[in-house]
């Protein structure tokens, strides 16, 4: 427990600092749109036509559309069950709430976001074991649930802030999340570039690679830290459910639902890590018997992954600072 308390303290510190940080996060209004200053009186510009936006190929768009429809249905069911829970004052709808929230988490995470880019990039390019995929995904989902509950509990319960201010603080958390992701990407790149004693010697015939498959302990720490960084940004859906249950005096039910959602998110993100992990393994085979070449390829892939994650974090940060991206609009 003692060894866990330092990272835990660091996380809590980061959480609180992010909340109080004076980052220029222009949060979204209640409709997920940036609060733009009123333009000159007169006519509104026609909103940007959807024709300019990239359109996915038909089968993918179809699947995404169906996932969205299921997600909306689940959310409506969840709201219905939450109202039943409030009315009846009993815990009977709790099982339905947990189940629906879990399913909602699964489908909600299927859309863009929730750490799939970071997790996918990681397992596509870095040396890792299968279980690490579940570890990182689980960490990201758990931290995301905790982040939402902490945020609402601290700001709405203790400080009695309204939802508008809550979303503004959540926006700070999102910005901090991308900041940490960027730093971790750099740390990963450093881990690839710095010389490693174990792999510098020439390869002897018969020299098994089994021993090289286990990543050193610092990789595991980096992996979990990446998961935590992704989860720092709380899920808007969870926040709304928590606020609803808080207002209707069934807050514990909301917390339960949030963690059930987190479990669902963990399942979907784990699936992504599994898929990219499998891809990584099959690509590794392509190195063939040429160990030196395979090692070089592996190093290059690992570096590419670290760079991708760094760039992702940086792009999001730049997007938020320049106003192109509105935090918490999702």
């Amino acid at each position: 427990m003692l060894t866990m308390s330092r990272p835990l303290l660091r996380f809590l510190l980061l959480f609180v600092l992010s909340l109080t940080g004076a980052l220029p996060a222009s949060a979204a209004d209640l409709f997920g749109h940036p609060e733009a200053p009123p333009a000159a009186a007169g006519l509104t510009p026609q909103p940007p036509s959807s024709a300019r936006v990239m359109v996915l190929p038909a089968p993918v768009a179809d699947i995404l559309g169906r996932a969205l429809a299921v997600q909306s249905r689940l959310n409506a069911e969840l709201r219905g069950e939450l109202q039943d829970a409030k009315r009846s004052g009993s815990w009977q709808p709790a099982l339905a709430i947990v189940f629906i929230s879990f399913l909602y988490g699964v489908f909600h995470a299927a859309g863009p976001g929730h750490g799939k880019i970071v997790v996918g990039s990681y397992f596509l390019t870095q040396r890792a074991r299968l279980l690490h995929g579940f570890a990182m995904s689980g960490m990201a989902a758990l931290v995301q649930a905790v982040s939402a509950v902490l945020l609402v509990s601290l700001l709405a319960v203790l400080l009695d802030l309204g939802s508008g201010q809550l979303l503004a603080y959540a926006a700070n958390l999102e910005t901090a999340s991308y900041g940490v992701i960027t730093l971790l990407g750099l740390w990963m790149a450093w881990g690839v570039l710095r010389p490693r004693p174990c792999c510098d010697h020439a390869h002897q015939p018969g020299h098994g690679h089994g021993a090289h498959q286990t990543p050193p302990l610092s990789d595991l720490a980096r992996l979990l830290a990446t998961g935590a960084a992704v989860g720092l940004r709380p899920c808007s859906g969870a926040i709304l459910v928590l606020l609803f249950t808080l207002a209707n005096e069934i807050y514990p039910v909301g917390i339960l639902a949030t963690f059930a959602m987190g479990l669902g998110v963990a399942v979907t993100v784990s699936a992504v890590s599994l898929a990219t992990f499998g891809l990584h393994r099959s690509l590794a085979v392509l190195g063939g018997g040429r160990h030196a070449l395979a090692d070089r390829l592996r190093q290059a892939a690992a570096l590419a992954g670290a760079v991708a994650i760094t760039l992702f974090g940086l792009l999001q940060l730049l997007g938020i600072w320049s106003g192109v991206i509105t935090p918490m609009a999702g």
Binding site: G32, L68, S72, A76, G111, G113, G237, G319, V324, G330
Partner: peptide, 22 residues
């Protein structure tokens, strides 16, 4: 991978699945 990140970061709020129903 980078291209995907760029596309998703610049498209209409990549995480904007509905949270409000009207």
């Amino acid at each position: 991978m980078i291209g995907l990140a760029l596309a998703l970061a610049s498209g209409p709020k990549a995480e904007a699945h509905p949270h409000v129903w009207v």
